[in-house]
Structure formats: structure tokens, C-alpha cells
Design a protein around this nucleic acid. Structure first.
Lengths: 108, 108
DNA sequence: CACAGTATCTTGCGTTGCAAGGTACTTACC
DNA sequence: GGTAAGTACCTTGCAACGCAAGATACTGTG
């Protein structure tokens, strides 16, 4: 899969999954991987960025086997961001598809 | 507009426009700018890359006012690439949209 | 004890788009 | 003639992002 396509999109993917339920990082990788190939080296820096920007908060929870899980929960600002980026993505998608279909004039 | 969304997509946009007609660089910027914000500093390196990879050939043509125009024409390999990247983009788009809609299971 | 599985994190690299700047030609205006 | 604006090309250095690779730590199994 074209790595470049993913740039910026993984962020809205993470926000969108978190909008449905709180997740820990490893879980997010598994969820998103069902649709889009993603690695751990990508998700953790992304989650830290989202936390720095105030879009998520975290809380620890013990796990049956293995290290304790760090859950991520969307904040109000995170929900707003999710909504805005979703709109932006759909608008972008429509623009690209119009271009690929040869409808090159904005006035169509 | 989110700059990151464009990564990799501008290449298929250029290939797609060139699949309809030969264009010169400045023209491509104008065509694509109707839908997606793009600058000259992006398009020229991209065109050189496409030429290096053998996806386009070039020919010069005089212009009424201003510098001579360098037209870009898709090669066979370029047409193949256009087709493949278009498929890939549409597949990617569908995956992302499924994720954003909460259909997180590949078996849906 | 060694290994696999779960779960987190960091470092350095490659790719790509962009702002900013430069070149060169033509037309229009003063 | 000089200056500006428009057309058209190009290059350099920067910033953002995803990834491979590796490190850490805990649990359960052989």
C-alpha cells in the first residue's frame, strides 16, 4: 500500500475509532490494521501528539497478561477535531475523485 | 487544507490529468488548483520524478507571451501507473471511509 | 530458564509538499 | 527607454509524517 496516502489520514482514523470507544494503543493498531496497514512505531508518537494537543486524555488499567494498558479517551476538543477532520477528509476525497474523473472545472 | 492529505495523491492527480491531455507544468498547476491547492514548487520536482521513472516524456513548444512551454505526455508505463494508482487510491478511500463509519471489521 | 505473547516507547531515516527565491521572455504603461 | 506584471521554468532548505528497528517490561508455557 502507498505509504504516502496515509499521511494525515491515520490521525482522523484514530480519532474516529476513539469516538466510538476508549482504546489502548495496541488495540488501536489491531483495529485499524483490519482496514489499513499500520505499525506501532506510527501509533504511539501519534497518540502522544494528540495528548499534547489536548485531544485525548489517558488512564491506566491492568491487563490479564502483559503490561498494563494505557487507555485513550477523546476530550471535547478531540470530538470537535474528529468532526472537523472528517468533514475535511470527505471534502478532500470528493475533490480528488472529481479530478480523477476528469471533471476539472470547479464550476461543474 | 490539510497538507498531509495531499502526500502521494498529487502524483495520481497529475497522471490523471495527463491521461486526458498533454499539459505543461504551469497549466497543470492551474488545472489542479481548481480543485486542490497546489504550488509550483511541488509540481516541477514531481514532474521531473515522473520523467526519471519513465512515466512521461517531454517536448518543447513556443508560447505566445512568455517562456516556451514544456509539455508532458504519458508513456505506456505512465498509463499503466495511472491505472494502478487510481485503483489503489479508490481502494484506500473505501477502507478509510469504512473505518470512519465505524465498520471496523474487515469481514463486513 | 528460555521463549512467545502482550503492551509500551524511542531513534533515525526516507518521502513528499511548500515557501522562498532565482531565471528568462513578452506585453503594457509611464 | 525603464519598470512592472504576467507567463513559464527551475532549485534549495525545511517541516511533517509513517516506518523499520530496537529497547523495555510483564505474564504464562514448556
Amino acid at each position: 500500500m502507498n505509504i504516502q496516502f496515509k499521511k494525515g489520514v491515520l490521525e482522523i482514523c484514530v480519532l474516529s475509532v476513539l469516538a466510538h470507544k476508549d482504546c489502548y494503543g495496541y488495540e488501536l493498531v489491531n483495529e485499524i490494521s483490519k482496514r489499513i496497514d499500520i505499525s506501532e512505531g506510527t501509533i504511539y508518537p501519534l497518540l502522544h501528539r494528540l495528548k499534547d494537543e489536548g485531544h485525548v486524555t489517558t488512564y491506566l488499567q491492568e491487563s490479564a497478561g502483559g503490561a498494563p494498558r494505557k487507555y485513550y479517551r477523546l476530550t471535547e476538543s478531540g470530538r470537535k477535531e474528529e468532526h472537523e477532520q472528517k468533514e475535511e477528509w470527505m471534502q478532500f476525497c470528493a475533490s480528488v475523485n472529481a479530478l480523477l474523473e476528469g471533471k476539472n472545472h470547479a464550476a461543474d
